[in-house]
Amino acid sequence: MLQIITTNEAFKSLILEAVEFAVNNIPQKEPTKEAQIITGEDLSKKLGVTIQTLIRWRQKGKIPFLQIGNSIRYDLYKVLDSLEAKKKGAKK
């Protein structure tokens, strides 16, 4: 649609409408989850699996982990995302 702007007020109104439209249509990003670092024992309880299963998954690269010295820790959200991705990949 062709619109002829004849006044400063019409121009301001047009700009305001365009900015308002742009702001209201910004794609919403999913909020990022803060890392929740937990032990293998806590993760096994949350997932309902054994420690041995976690070790096997870790060795196969199925779940991410952090190793600091001899300690192994897991970021709960990264593990859940990884398992979900593997689950979706297996369904294809």
Rank of each mutant, 00 (worst) to 15 (best):
L2V: 11
L2N: 12
Q3T: 13
Q3H: 10
Q3F: 04
T6W: 11
T7W: 05
T7C: 02
N8I: 12
E9S: 15
F11N: 09
F11P: 02
K12D: 13
L14Y: 00
A18D: 02
V19F: 03
E20M: 06
F21P: 00
A22F: 06
A22W: 09
V23M: 01
I26R: 13
P27T: 12
Q28P: 02
P31L: 01
K33R: 15
Q36W: 08
Q36H: 07
Q36R: 11
I37H: 05
I38S: 09
I38F: 04
G40S: 14
D42R: 09
K45M: 07
K46Q: 14
K46E: 11
K46F: 03
G48M: 08
L54Y: 02
L54M: 07
R56C: 05
R56L: 01
W57Q: 02
Q59H: 03
K60A: 08
G61R: 11
G61A: 08
I63F: 10
P64V: 03
L66D: 10
L66M: 13
Q67F: 00
N70G: 15
Y74G: 05
D75K: 07
Y77H: 15
D81L: 07
D81M: 10
D81A: 13
D81T: 04
S82M: 06
S82W: 07
E84H: 10
E84T: 01
K86C: 08
K88E: 14
K88M: 11
K92C: 02
